Computed example of a mutant assay.
Amino acid sequence: MDGNDKKSLIVAAATELFSSKGVRNTTIGQIAKTAGIGKGTIYYYYSDKTEILLECYMNHIQITRRRAFERSSNEQDLLLKVMKFLHYISDEARQDPFVSTLVSEYREYRLPEINLCFKHSEEDAVGILSKLIEKGMDQDHLEKVPLPLTAFLLVRMMLAYNLDYEKNEKSDEEFLSLLKRLFS
């Protein structure tokens, strides 16, 4: 078994444990046991649990976001694609079991290692959204806007929209209209 296989075992075991038990209740020893490897092997690849958590979380987020993007790849309306991606990233906290476990644990304990994951996740979302908007600007579908500031504000705006705004049957339509005004 080579190093990549061992790292994959560690990440799979840790993701399973973080999802089911949370970060606070998962130990390096439990990860090693679940992965079927020695505890020392984990320390060969990772310096601590935070490093493992970050790799697990970002691998998971990038895979699920890539799938979401593939599902909307046939969407012709660029702003509708942007809105769908924004909805997806804000829904991760409620619908994805791994992410929702971390969100719940963060709300209760404010663990800095989970906050670090969320910060990296937001940076990843801003990067993806920036590329999507930049592509639209390059193809003259969207007006020029400052990137990544616009992408960052859109990510934060969608989170607030989904968490705090009282929606009605026209809310998404109005949100899309707002995006169209922003980029025209």
Score class of each variant (00 low, 15 high):
residue 38 G to S: 12
residue 63 I to W: 08
residue 154 L to I: 02
residue 26 T to I: 04
residue 131 K to L: 12
residue 72 S to K: 08
residue 14 A to I: 05
residue 40 G to T: 14
residue 40 G to I: 09
residue 119 K to T: 14
residue 133 I to T: 04
residue 75 E to M: 13
residue 13 A to R: 01
residue 163 L to G: 11
residue 102 L to P: 03
residue 163 L to H: 13
residue 167 K to D: 08
residue 170 K to A: 11
residue 107 R to C: 14
residue 54 L to Q: 10
residue 112 P to W: 07
residue 89 I to H: 02
residue 135 K to D: 13
residue 156 R to N: 12
residue 144 K to F: 06
residue 152 F to S: 11
residue 168 N to P: 10
residue 133 I to W: 01
residue 81 K to H: 09
residue 171 S to K: 08
residue 79 L to V: 04
residue 183 F to N: 02
residue 51 E to F: 04
residue 56 C to R: 00
residue 157 M to T: 08
residue 102 L to S: 02
residue 106 Y to W: 13
residue 55 E to V: 09
residue 158 M to A: 10
residue 84 K to P: 03
residue 123 E to Y: 04
residue 77 D to Y: 04
residue 101 T to C: 12
residue 146 P to S: 12
residue 16 E to H: 10
residue 158 M to R: 08
residue 126 V to D: 00
residue 94 R to Y: 14
residue 111 L to S: 10
residue 90 S to K: 04
residue 77 D to K: 06
residue 97 P to S: 10
residue 31 I to G: 00
residue 77 D to C: 05
residue 132 L to N: 01
residue 16 E to Q: 12
residue 84 K to W: 05
residue 56 C to W: 00
residue 61 I to T: 06
residue 3 G to L: 10
residue 176 L to M: 07
residue 103 V to D: 08
residue 64 T to L: 09
residue 100 S to E: 09
residue 126 V to E: 03
residue 101 T to E: 10
residue 57 Y to V: 03
residue 103 V to C: 09
residue 113 E to P: 05
residue 119 K to N: 11
residue 4 N to D: 10
residue 164 D to I: 15
residue 110 R to F: 10
residue 177 S to Q: 15
residue 159 L to M: 13
residue 4 N to G: 03
residue 173 E to N: 10
residue 161 Y to I: 08
residue 23 V to D: 02
residue 21 K to G: 01
residue 1 M to D: 11
residue 111 L to I: 14
residue 74 N to P: 05
residue 74 N to E: 15
residue 1 M to W: 07
residue 139 Q to N: 13
residue 94 R to K: 15
residue 2 D to T: 12
residue 114 I to G: 00
residue 38 G to C: 07
residue 62 Q to K: 15
residue 173 E to R: 13
residue 119 K to I: 13
residue 107 R to H: 13
residue 127 G to V: 03
residue 105 E to G: 06
residue 53 L to A: 04
residue 33 K to A: 11
residue 156 R to L: 10
residue 144 K to M: 11
residue 59 N to M: 09
residue 129 L to H: 00
residue 155 V to T: 08
residue 99 V to T: 10
residue 138 D to G: 07
residue 60 H to T: 01
residue 152 F to K: 14
residue 169 E to Q: 11
residue 75 E to W: 04
residue 134 E to Q: 14
residue 68 A to P: 03
residue 57 Y to M: 05
residue 131 K to E: 15
residue 7 K to S: 02
residue 136 G to D: 07
residue 124 D to W: 07
residue 96 D to Y: 02
residue 154 L to K: 00
residue 134 E to W: 04
residue 69 F to K: 12
residue 89 I to R: 05
